[in-house]
């Protein structure tokens, strides 16, 4: 047997494993308790190995007319609509900024960049949203603060710049219009950057509750994250969520189950997220 496992390697493996477990085990704890029965949590507390399994919490969530289901639909809608809109705005602007025929591209890039350094803060932003009637409606969850980010713009622009210039020249020579070049020639070539930017935006929308805290008073429009926040901070919300269950509504396991259905899509998309996110992140951190 080869002696290739030294003491220092063992130490490194242990430390790295330990930190990974600290990152992931608490999420597992939430999951195991989401399928625990209310009685088991009540008697034995939260544990990795619940004494009694029950799916009543999930039944309560997927009960027709449950507020959580409604929030879920709102979250899905704002994530889908927001990501498409954000991607379109970003891609079009990035395409124009990467185009060498556009004379003022650098001035415009500076124009976008400045807002990332000097921003006026929360209060002016809030008053502007109110002025634009982006308050207490579904658009207030989509348009303010998330629909366009200069960081993603520059990420996309740098990617398009990396494509050969001759592509544009030959397309122009063949008489293709700008819209055609942008959508039929460049768009398919930009798919890696588009995937990265869409994931950034989609994750932002899915996890967003800042807009909801700031701009919503109407509980009927709460996205999932906001409902979750309210369940914890406001006992009225919890009783509203459980009121549709007549007998002994689960509360503790219901909280955990709601958290699990909220991170569900992230878990499913995680392989893609990780791949594109790390790429985009490293590019952004080093070149940005």
């Amino acid at each position: 047997m080869k002696k290739n496992f030294t003491l220092s390697e063992l130490f490194i493996t242990c430390v790295v494993s330990l930190f990974s477990l600290i990152c992931i085990l608490p999420i597992l704890l939430v999951f195991t308790n989401s399928i625990a029965s209310e009685k088991s949590i009540g008697t034995y507390g939260y544990s990795f190995f619940p004494k009694e399994i029950s799916l009543s919490a999930y039944r309560a969530i997927f009960y027709p007319g449950s507020p959580i289901l409604k929030s879920y639909a709102i979250s899905v809608f704002i994530t889908a609509a927001g990501t498409i809109l954000a991607l379109l705005i970003t891609y079009l602007a990035a395409y124009a900024l990467a185009n060498r025929h556009v004379k003022y591209r650098n001035e415009l890039a500076l124009f976008f960049f400045i807002t990332t350094v000097f921003n006026s803060g929360l209060v002016p932003w809030y008053l502007m949203c109110k002025l634009l009637h982006l308050y207490n409606n579904i658009w207030s969850l989509i348009i303010p603060s998330l629909v366009f980010s200069p960081f993603n713009l520059f990420l996309m622009r740098n990617f398009i710049r990396g494509l050969p210039d001759s592509l544009m020249e030959s397309a122009k020579m063949d008489g293709a219009k700008e819209t055609r070049i942008a959508f039929q020639i460049y768009f398919p070539l930009c798919l890696p950057a588009i995937a990265t930017v869409s994931l950034f935006y989609a994750l932002g929308y899915w996890n967003d509750w800042f807009n909801a805290v700031m701009l919503l008073d109407n509980a009927n429009l709460y996205p999932l994250q906001m409902t979750l926040f309210k369940i914890q901070s406001d006992s009225k919300m919890l009783s509203e969520v459980t009121s549709i269950i007549a007998m002994n509504p689960p509360t503790e396991s219901l909280k955990m189950a709601t958290a699990i259905v909220t991170i569900g899509p992230i878990v499913l998309l995680y392989p893609f997220l990780q791949k594109y996110f790390v790429k985009g992140m490293i590019v952004g951190a080093i070149k940005g």
Partner: peptide
């Protein structure tokens, strides 16, 4: 494993904290 917590919102983190 280590990157996963970066993708979840602080609201979810507060639920995890609550379980702990």
């Amino acid at each position: 494993f280590m990157l996963f917590p970066h993708f979840i919102s602080w609201v979810i983190v507060s639920y995890i904290l609550y379980a702990l």
